[in-house]
């Protein structure tokens, strides 16, 4: 049983528009059987934070292509992407590259 985690979730680059324009969210992920990873965090975000047009943020079980994910300011591609296991006090930043120019 994994203990509850306190995590900062942040949206930028236009992705915040899908979350009522709110960039920073301090969230508590409840304790659960499996450890929390980015894959399960995305499911939690879709259920609890995402306000509109979920297809612009999530496709399949991952983020929409063109949305960058940084964990503690490091590219998730270096950390195992969806399989990265969240630690207490981690910060996860989603940046859209798809807006404006």
């Amino acid at each position: 049983m994994a203990a509850p985690l306190s995590v900062e979730v942040e949206f930028g680059g236009g992705a915040e528009l899908l979350f009522d324009g709110v960039k920073k969210h301090q969230v508590t992920l409840p304790g659960q059987e499996e450890p929390w990873d980015i894959r399960s965090l995305l499911v939690w975000i879709k259920k609890n934070l995402l306000k509109e047009r979920p297809e612009l943020f999530i496709q399949g079980d991952s983020v929409r292509p063109g949305i960058l994910v940084l964990v503690n300011d490091a590219d998730w591609e270096l950390l195992g992407e969806l399989d990265y296991q969240l630690q207490d006090q981690d910060s996860v930043l989603f940046i859209s590259t798809l807006h404006g120019g």
Binding site: L17, L68, I95, T97, G100
Partner: peptide, 21 residues
């Protein structure tokens, strides 16, 4: 690439406007 442009802005802490027209 788009990814590098966005990450450059991020690491240099540049303030930009990102709403879609």
């Amino acid at each position: 690439s788009q990814k590098e442009v966005v990450l450059y802005a991020h690491f240099r802490r540049l303030d930009y406007f990102s709403e879609e027209c």
